Computed example of a mutant assay.
Amino acid sequence: MTDASPFADPKNLDDKIEETARFAPKFGADGLLPVVATEAGTGRLLMLAYMNEAALAKTIETGEAWYWSRSRGELWRKGATSGHVQKIAEIRTDCDQDAIELVVEQTGPACHTNRKSCFYRIVVSADKLKMKD
């Protein structure tokens, strides 16, 4: 986190991290936080992505999902090119604040393959997948 971080520093909490009412996300050594997006209403898992501090701050500020692209090394707004925007219904953090769940209203498919979810294959065996959608 930067010195100008809008988030509480997890090292400076008075309460245990599991019981605090302060938002103090623990970004990894790479500066990233894993994020799952689930569909509001159904709870369906849509995708897994990563956020850096800037992506998390923009998500909170705009009410739309922003992520950090590890492959492109840049910030991106979900749906910027496809139009398949994720509107935030709720942002949740896990017990030790090192992962985020975005509960979203998904416009169109979540996956870049044009499927509703990125989790569209079932592992049948060590070397075989089965398509679900």
Rank of each mutant, 00 (worst) to 15 (best):
residue 37 A to N: 02
residue 26 K to G: 03
residue 61 E to T: 10
residue 122 I to A: 10
residue 121 R to Y: 15
residue 68 W to L: 07
residue 50 Y to N: 11
residue 82 S to T: 15
residue 84 H to F: 12
residue 76 W to F: 06
residue 106 Q to Y: 10
residue 75 L to H: 04
residue 103 V to F: 07
residue 88 I to K: 04
residue 27 F to M: 08
residue 67 Y to R: 01
residue 55 A to Y: 02
residue 34 P to K: 03
residue 46 L to H: 01
residue 133 D to A: 09
residue 65 A to E: 08
residue 43 G to L: 05
residue 24 A to K: 07
residue 123 V to A: 10
residue 52 N to L: 09
residue 14 D to T: 11
residue 47 M to T: 09
residue 31 G to Y: 05
residue 76 W to C: 04
residue 44 R to Y: 00
residue 47 M to H: 00
residue 123 V to G: 00
residue 16 K to M: 10
residue 92 R to S: 07
residue 93 T to E: 11
residue 45 L to V: 00
residue 25 P to D: 06
residue 126 A to I: 06
residue 3 D to A: 14
residue 50 Y to D: 02
residue 98 D to N: 12
residue 3 D to Q: 14
residue 47 M to A: 06
residue 92 R to C: 10
residue 5 S to K: 03
residue 3 D to I: 10
residue 63 G to N: 07
residue 121 R to L: 14
residue 19 E to D: 15
residue 101 E to W: 10
residue 5 S to Y: 04
residue 87 K to L: 13
residue 49 A to D: 00
residue 128 K to N: 05
residue 8 A to L: 07
residue 92 R to Y: 10
residue 88 I to M: 12
residue 60 I to R: 14
residue 55 A to G: 11
residue 77 R to T: 03
residue 119 F to V: 03
residue 74 E to C: 06
residue 16 K to C: 01
residue 29 A to Q: 12
residue 23 F to K: 04
residue 99 A to V: 08
residue 92 R to E: 13
residue 56 L to I: 08
residue 105 E to A: 11
residue 69 S to F: 10
residue 54 A to V: 13
residue 118 C to R: 00
residue 117 S to K: 01
residue 118 C to V: 02
residue 84 H to C: 15
residue 48 L to I: 08
residue 121 R to M: 13
residue 87 K to W: 07
residue 132 K to Y: 12
residue 83 G to Y: 12
residue 18 E to N: 05
residue 53 E to W: 01
residue 117 S to I: 04
residue 28 G to D: 15
residue 115 R to T: 15
residue 49 A to V: 04
residue 8 A to F: 10
residue 120 Y to D: 13
residue 18 E to C: 01
residue 41 G to Y: 11
residue 74 E to I: 00
residue 7 F to K: 04
residue 59 T to R: 03
residue 50 Y to A: 10
residue 34 P to E: 14
residue 6 P to Q: 13
residue 86 Q to K: 13
residue 9 D to S: 13
residue 30 D to Q: 05
residue 3 D to K: 13
residue 15 D to T: 04
residue 23 F to N: 03
residue 112 H to C: 07
residue 122 I to R: 12
residue 57 A to D: 14
residue 128 K to M: 10
residue 98 D to K: 01
residue 76 W to Q: 04
residue 110 A to M: 08
residue 84 H to N: 15
residue 68 W to M: 06
residue 6 P to K: 14
residue 118 C to M: 03
residue 125 S to W: 10
residue 111 C to S: 08
residue 47 M to N: 03
residue 44 R to I: 00
residue 78 K to M: 13
residue 2 T to H: 12
residue 64 E to Q: 14
residue 51 M to P: 02
residue 16 K to T: 07
residue 132 K to M: 13
residue 79 G to R: 07
residue 119 F to I: 04
residue 133 D to P: 09
residue 22 R to Y: 06
residue 127 D to R: 09
residue 126 A to F: 09
residue 32 L to P: 00
residue 128 K to A: 14
residue 130 K to P: 00
residue 32 L to K: 04
residue 91 I to D: 06
residue 103 V to G: 03
residue 48 L to F: 11
residue 108 G to S: 11
residue 78 K to G: 11
residue 98 D to V: 06
residue 54 A to G: 03
residue 109 P to I: 05
residue 100 I to C: 08
residue 36 V to P: 00
residue 58 K to I: 01
residue 110 A to H: 03
residue 69 S to E: 11
residue 124 V to S: 09
residue 80 A to Q: 13
